[in-house]
């Protein structure tokens, strides 16, 4: 028995699901961002696993781009959180109702 791509893909599915559930359950925007990072990491695991299984380096290139986009997303997201915190004292997603119709 050896570690095949299937193992990595199952782990990736589990990690993605945990990130999804966390994103839905938690109401602190910082923790919600962390859950998005978990989901991105799950996708990275499966990209590298497929890259190894298909013997194609394109999967690793995709991981590289995911890393860059994740960094940009965190920078913009956290500055949004900082800008929101200037206006209201508590940090809860439920309080952000400025866009309500």
């Amino acid at each position: 028995m050896e570690v095949t791509a299937t193992w990595y893909l199952i782990l990736s599915a589990l990690l993605f699901t945990m990130g999804l559930v966390g994103l839905l359950v938690r109401r602190n925007p910082l923790i919600m961002f962390m859950c998005v990072e978990l989901m991105l990491n799950a996708v990275n695991i499966s990209f590298v696993a497929f890259s190894g299984a298909l013997n194609d380096v394109a999967g690793r290139t995709a991981v590289f781009f995911v890393l860059v986009v994740a960094a940009a997303e965190v920078v913009v997201g956290l500055s949004l959180v900082v800008a929101l915190m200037r206006r209201r004292p508590t940090l809860t997603a439920d309080d952000l109702t400025a866009l309500r119709g």
Partner: peptide
């Protein structure tokens, strides 16, 4: 470690 860390986050 990965799944434990994820559980810790959520």
């Amino acid at each position: 470690i990965i799944l434990g860390g994820a559980a810790g986050v959520i």
